[in-house]
């Protein structure tokens, strides 16, 4: 049975699309047939992060309105055999998403795919609610920063009250915390919330910590999900997230600040 996973956060700019792109790519690299859907109707960006922006012909809303078939709208990833992208519409607004329409498309995708990754827009409006409504599991993307933690807490409340599983009284959505833009150095200096702080505040299980890294920006610059950059810490951290999601027990990595030399210890950076 196919699994629907929403990548959500409440707050914008914390790394939902980056996480969706790398997570979906990682699942596909493990041999799972995976589709990643951009729910940010009107502000699509997943196509850019996945590097397929010039190949978009039809989009999610076209399929919802029966203007195109799923087969026409799905874009096959260039590097990954099992990966497909369903881009959002850039011209319509979020009201184009209806519960019935989204359910119909998800059911159709479930016949062909193992994993359906829903990249949620920021906020708690229609697009975000539709992205999480049918989810079986959720990745909560959180920066170690006050507004992101508060918004994640709010989204957790919505997952447990307004999702289909909550409304139907089924087993609740399985939640996983992904901490992004983590700087071990700033945590050591007491300037940034630690992993334990964020875990205490949100009290959901942690599936991975993505260190702040320059490679995330260069990956988005070139339209290649950062998980492909196997030399980078964030790429490796995303690969760990995928492994843990698939049930592999791995210790957390990249949680120590780099040791500084004597000169920089005296003079700072």
């Amino acid at each position: 049975m196919a699994k629907v996973i929403v990548v959500t956060s409440g707050k914008g700019g914390v790394g939902k699309t980056t996480t969706s792109a790398s997570f979906a790519t990682g699942l596909a690299m493990k041999g799972n047939k995976t589709v990643v859907i951009d729910f940010d109707v009107g502000l699509r960006n997943l196509d850019l992060i996945m590097g397929c922006e010039r190949r978009v012909v039809y989009d999610f809303v076209n399929v919802l309105n029966n203007e195109a078939s799923l087969k026409q709208a799905l874009i096959k990833d260039k590097q990954c055999e099992n990966l497909f992208i369903l881009p959002a519409s850039q011209t319509r607004d979020k009201d184009a998403l209806t519960e019935e329409g989204v359910e119909r498309i998800l059911n159709e995708l479930k016949e062909d795919f193992d994993y359906i990754v829903c990249d949620s827009p920021a906020g708690i409006e229609k697009g975000a609610l539709m992205a999480l409504y049918f989810a079986d599991e959720a990745l909560i993307v959180t920066n170690p920063e006050v507004s992101s933690v508060r918004d994640s807490d709010r989204i957790l409340g919505i997952l447990s009250a307004k999702s289909k599983r909550a409304v139907d009284g089924d087993e609740p959505i399985k939640e996983h915390l992904v901490i992004t833009r983590y700087s071990a150095k700033r945590v050591e200096m007491g300037e940034m919330l630690s992993i334990d702080d964020v875990k205490d505040l949100l009290s959901i299980p942690l599936i991975g910590v993505i260190p702040e890294s320059e490679s995330v920006l260069s990956a988005s610059n070139s339209g290649v999900p950062v998980i492909h950059d196997i030399d980078s810490t964030s790429g490796q951290a995303y690969a760990d997230v995928v492994d843990r999601f698939m049930g592999v027990n791995l210790p957390l990595r990249f949680l120590q600040a780099e040791k500084k030399g004597l000169l920089s210890r005296i003079f700072g950076n």
Partner: peptide, 23 residues
């Protein structure tokens, strides 16, 4: 924190304040 920071008069760490406010 670097050695010179002690002379620069660095502010108190703010993460604990953040956690308290969030709680």
């Amino acid at each position: 924190m670097s050695f010179l920071d002690y002379f620069r008069g660095k502010r108190a760490p703010s993460a604990s304040v953040a956690k308290e406010r969030l709680q």
